[in-house]
Design a protein around this nucleic acid. Structure first.
Length: 827
RNA sequence: GGGCGAGUGGCGAAAUGGUAGACGCGCUAGUCUUAGGAACUAGUAGGAAACCCCUGUGUGAGUUCGAAUCUCACCUCGCCCACCA
């Protein structure tokens, strides 16, 4: 064994050996129980950042730990490789998106290998390769066949900078999730997936996800946004047979309606406008169109609106009220119209105040006398001014009003979701082409399965403004209709890349299948993913879409389970100086530099050691340095022991050992126990690493005190050192493999079992018991483990320090907590 | 505006009803060394030091023999959603 720790040398060496001997290859089937550990696969943006390093290290340690614990571990890696940056590279530097992407993949794959990650590289997939996107397209056609993929013209989110439409989930605070450009609305005909068909199940099955953080489940719940209410129908006074329907969660406030508001884009709004109002209303509608989404949906902005001139009739009391249009009414939610109840809705109240619309109070807190409303009252109460419904509590009122509406053809009860269908068309080049054909005779025709994949053309011009580069291809667009064989046009839009990432974890199980999307039996035997690790930023997007895909594929008979991810760990961000690492802030740390200066093992150790995985992690140079020093300290410890330790010693019976040998043996077992608990319960790698450090300190103490070693000493020391090496193996795999082999350990340490502990040996011989008087610590005593209660109590009471506090006072009570403390209560 | 989470040394953090601050970073003193930003030893919550003692986990109350931990109110910060009727 060399005196110096040279990570750069040993890491290269073992990475090569692991690859040559293919030790991380996962058999499809095995006698061992399966364990599927998965990190969210990266977008190949160029090089790894520290967020990747953290994500993949966490999953790698879990995978290695499970493998050493006897599982057949699937731990794959691939590339979420369609997406806009590749296209921007083509526009900015003239590089071919495919070439740009694959060269990034090559570089990043190399970095992942340098980090010493235990992947089965035979299963590598890239979503931009034909053998993958062929099946993405096939899945799209499955949705189409099931009636869950449809094309519809509607106002959609448009990002001018990316020159494409976006899904609702990709609009963050009114801005594009990728480039921060303000999103505008555009009316376009686009492809949607009918995720709303699964809204109820996506909501209900959140309860099954016991291994998910509550935070993520709550975010999904809010996003799905289920609300119970009623649709109520109002006749238009001036127009025969015309009705306006509204959705409301407060049917109990129907008698408080004093106006009706429809959105400026409300279908049929023209009919509602009387001649004398035309000019003003159209001006208002035009202005609303021009406004950005941010402006439009700002809650700060005062309410605006104009009356249309027509009126609605309240079916409950026959009263007539004016119809307004106001841009605070959303076109896409409910029916695009709301009943205005100023007394019991904050927005309606603000609207009514501004335009001097009457306010009718219909819900009043129980027992309160009538008084003018300063603000909308939105709490529970008793119904007033509501005809035959007066005196009901408003919850009962909701039901009665709905029943009355149903009986009188004036409405019905309704469940409404906030979730919208998933817009998946993108007017971009670098994505999976939507496999559809437009024929003048036959209409929209799917590409037959046997003609997949629809391959992306390479003869395109990327420097076109405002349209998809695919349209510039001379070979792609023109085709023939598969049904009638006459000339037809291909769909030129590509799919949202979130489609590609909604099923990749299934393909890893059967990555090379060229006949099917995957073998269902094999996938059923491997799923679910036992541990999924990734960033919280996917709490809604990717995780919701993937759940939707699995439910759909189950209903198509391809899968036999309901949810893809059993346990989810959302790791925190990597910060430096308290802020997120980013190129614009100039506080990034390049993994390559860390590998070069300290080695991968130091990087791995550090990124796990300072914070629990789900919390943000602050990168410090001193912290890296400290971890590097620790590994040097471990190396030195083992080097200094090299003449004394060997695999050949057997540890003698505990009773025959000296005190310090018994202590070191107990520390060894206690450490194994603690680390196993830390890793297997909550992946508390930070505390697991602390325990390793304490263990190293304890072994140092032992060796510092010793000059001559008996066989007993050598046996116990060997046990401690070899345990330490195996405990470190998942975290610092190269160092562990190196020292393991130096002492003649059989290759590979990563195929050896994780250390086991003996429950009795993990217990301390003596415990320190705290003595409190009236809850305040006054003394401590050493006692053997499990000493009888009476002995502990009498010893505690006889202590001099304790006597000083209790003499002359009345002893009220003595509480003895075994092996922990004694609390003497005096008056 | 609504929802959720978190507040502990100079710093990252341990401890989820039982000795607060494990482990580490930093700092201080010492040893070794030509020297060291290396290594080792000792110390390190505050009350100047020491034994003792007192105080101390955002603030205030409460439950308990005992509270960082449980309950209530408030303050601050972070995240998510946000004109969703």
């Amino acid at each position: 064994m060399k005196e110096q720790y040279k990570p750069q040398e040993i890491e290269k060496k073992w990475q090569k050996t692991w690859e040559e001997k293919n030790i991380y290859k996962t058999p499809d089937r095995s006698e061992k129980p399966k364990y599927y550990a998965l990190s969210m696969f990266p977008y190949p943006s160029g090089r790894l950042h520290m967020g990747h390093v953290r994500n993949y290290t966490i999953t790698d340690v879990i995978a290695r730990f499970k493998k050493m614990s006897g599982f057949n571990v699937l731990h794959p890696m691939g590339w979420d490789s369609f997406g806009l940056p590749a296209e921007n590279a083509a526009i900015n530097s003239g590089r071919d998106p495919a070439e740009w992407t694959f060269s990034n993949i090559d570089y990043m794959r190399d970095q992942l290998k340098q980090l010493g990650l235990a992947y089965d590289w035979d299963r590598e997939i890239a979503s931009c390769k034909e053998d993958y996107y062929k099946w993405t397209q096939w899945l799209f056609l499955e949705f189409y066949k099931a009636g869950l993929a449809y094309k519809k013209e509607s106002p959609v989110n448009w990002c001018e900078k990316c020159a494409t439409v976006l899904a609702n989930e990709q609009v963050i605070d009114g801005k594009c999730w990728r480039c921060d450009e303000e999103v505008t609305k555009k009316k376009l005909s686009q492809w949607f997936l009918k995720i709303t068909d699964y809204a109820e199940e996506l909501l209900r099955d959140l309860d099954k996800l016991k291994g998910w953080p509550d935070k993520v489940k709550l975010m999904q719940k809010n996003w799905i946004g289920k609300s119970h209410g009623a649709v109520l129908k109002f006749k238009v006074a001036e127009i025969q047979d015309m009705e306006i329907s509204v959705f409301t969660t407060r049917p109990d406030t129907i008698f408080g309606v004093t106006f009706m508001a429809v959105s400026p884009e409300y279908p049929g709004i023209e009919k509602l406008i009387t001649d004398e109002n035309k000019e003003k209303v159209y001006e208002y509608i035009e202005n609303a169109k021009k406004m950005s989404e941010i402006e439009r949906t700002s809650t700060e902005r005062p309410k605006t609106g104009v009356p249309l001139g027509t009126h609605i009739i309240n079916p409950f009391n026959g009263e007539k009220y004016p119809v307004w249009t106001g841009d605070y009414v959303l076109t896409e939610y409910g029916t695009g119209a709301v009943m205005g109840v100023p007394a019991h809705d904050a927005r309606d109240f603000a609207f009514a105040k501004k335009f001097e619309i009457p306010v009718i109070e219909v819900i009043r807190p129980e027992g309160q006398a009538e008084k003018p409303l300063e603000d909308a009252y939105v709490e529970q109460g008793i119904m007033v001014n509501s005809g035959e419904f007066n005196g009901l509590d408003n919850e009962t009122g909701k039901q009665r009003i709905t029943e009355w509406a149903e009986a009188n053809n004036a409405g019905y009860s309704q469940v409404q979701y906030r979730l919208r269908d998933w817009l998946i068309s993108r007017q971009r080049y670098w994505g999976a082409p939507i496999p559809m054909i437009y024929c003048d005779k036959c209409g929209i025709v799917p590409v037959p399965d046997e003609e997949l994949p629809v391959v992306l053309p390479s003869d395109v011009d990327f420097n076109v403004q405002g349209k998809s580069p695919v349209l510039t291809s001379e070979t792609f667009v023109d085709t023939v209709c598969p049904v009638c064989n006459t000339p037809a046009k291909r769909e030129t839009d590509t799919m949202d890349t979130f489609i590609c990432s909604s099923w990749y974890y299934l393909r890893f199980i059967d990555p090379k299948n060229d006949r099917k999307v995957f073998d269902s039996d094999l996938v059923n035997s491997w799923m679910n993913v036992d541990q999924y690790v990734g960033g919280i930023e996917h709490a809604i997007l990717h995780l919701l879409y993937s759940r939707f895909f699995v439910k759909f594929l189950r209903d198509r008979g391809l899968l036999n389970f309901d949810e893809p991810f059993e346990n989810l760990l959302t790791q925190g961000m990597v910060l430096k100086g308290g802020v997120k690492m980013s190129k614009s802030k100039g506080n990034t740390v390049d993994p390559d530099e860390i590998f070069e200066n300290y080695g991968a093992d130091t990087a791995r150790l550090f990124i796990l050691s300072d914070s629990p995985p789900e919390r943000d992690f602050d990168w410090t140079d001193a912290g890296v340095e400290g971890c590097y020093k620790f590994l040097n300290r471990v190396w030195r410890l083992i080097y200094n022991c090299s003449g004394k330790i060997s695999f050949n010693y057997a540890i003698p019976a505990v009773d025959s050992l000296s005190k310090e040998n018994r202590d070191l043996l107990r520390t060894t077992h206690k450490t194994i126990k603690g680390i196993k608990e830390d890793i297997s319960s909550e992946f508390q790698f930070n505390t697991a690493i602390s325990k390793c450090r304490e263990f190293v300190n304890a072994i140092y103490d032992y060796t510092n005190k010793k000059k001559d070693y008996t066989d007993d000493d050598k046996a116990v020391l060997s046990g401690a050192i070899f345990t330490l090496i195996r405990l470190l193996a998942p975290i610092t795999p190269h160092l562990a493999e190196e020292v393991w082999s130096e002492f003649g350990g059989e290759f590979s340490i990563h195929e050896k079992p994780f250390p086991e502990f003996d429950e009795n040996l993990a217990k301390a011989e003596n415990v320190t018991i705290a003595i409190q008087v009236n809850g305040k610590l006054r003394d401590t005593i050493e006692m053997p483990l499990n000493a009888p209660k009476e002995d502990v109590e009498s010893l505690a009471l006889s202590r001099e320090k304790v006597r000083g506090y209790i003499d002359g006072k009345q002893l009220a009570k003595v509480i003895v907590v075994p092996n922990r403390l004694v609390n003497v209560v005096v008056k």
